[in-house]
Design a protein around this nucleic acid. Structure first.
Lengths: 128, 128
DNA sequence: TCCGATGGTTACCTCAAGGTACGTACTTTC
DNA sequence: GAAAGTACGTACCTTGAGGTAACCATCGGA
């Protein structure tokens, strides 16, 4: 539950298997239905709200805004408002955001590439 | 939407940004609330139902069974029944399962280790 | 002059994820 | 002989995630 850190100070590491550990919450934000896709999209490049909305098929404005807000609260995404005449809002990953997104992109990429095998396995579902 | 594969044959790779791509479904199984934790737990070692139930805090028997079934259908988990007098059922990752689990474990581990920073960022939430 | 794009917020409603509780069939333990 | 563990399946019910639609303010273009 706890790890020693360089300075000799003690920092608490999370334990996702613990029902009450706050890491559970963070994990759920990151792996949420739209959270994964937002992180993956921003992993490619900085994007504006409308661009994200178009990039991520099927997401509603409401859920996109909500997801972006929780990811921003956790410090993964930075929101920048350009005060122009139709207001422009841009989203990019923070430094820690880049790191989580790295893992997420890896996972997503693996799934995309191995999709055929997985679908094959599914249809070969024995007996049921 | 499609990639060239070694043999010159064509295999379809997924695109998670496409609303109708089946990779969406697989992604949701893997990143589901309990799916992540099951994969992470089995990434350590083979486990029996009861062991999984105790390891993953807060999961109900129903959801554990359901999650294990979908992961088995996708070919990530293998179910082995040892016909004994209280029946014993063991779960382990398949080869493809090991690969997804690798990514999942990486993600989970990163979150556990960086939890303090994330929580700090959360409390420093500007303005709201 | 009216439309559409921009980036949202809010109210309202639905459906499905997920929890609780109980049943099952057999066996060991107290 | 009663309780508890093993590995679920099923029925029932609640909660909340998430969709739809309307509204807002401002500006450029047809």
């Amino acid at each position: 539950m706890s790890v020693e850190v360089s300075g000799g100070l003690q920092a608490l590491a999370g334990d996702v298997f613990d029902k009450n550990c706050p890491s559970r919450g963070v994990l759920e934000h990151v792996t949420s239905r739209w959270g994964v896709l937002v992180l993956a999209a921003l992993g490619e490049r900085e994007l504006r709200f409308g661009e994200l909305h178009r990039r991520i098929g099927g997401v509603s404005q409401k859920m996109l805004a909500q997801t972006l807000r929780t990811l921003a609260d956790d410090g993964f995404v930075e929101r920048t408002v350009i005060p122009a005449a139709p207001p422009q809002v841009s989203y990019r990953l923070t430094e820690t955001g880049e790191q989580v997104a790295g893992h997420v992109v890896g996972l997503v990429g693996w799934i995309e590439q191995h999709l055929p095998e997985i679908l094959a396995a599914r249809e070969a579902t024995p007996a049921r």
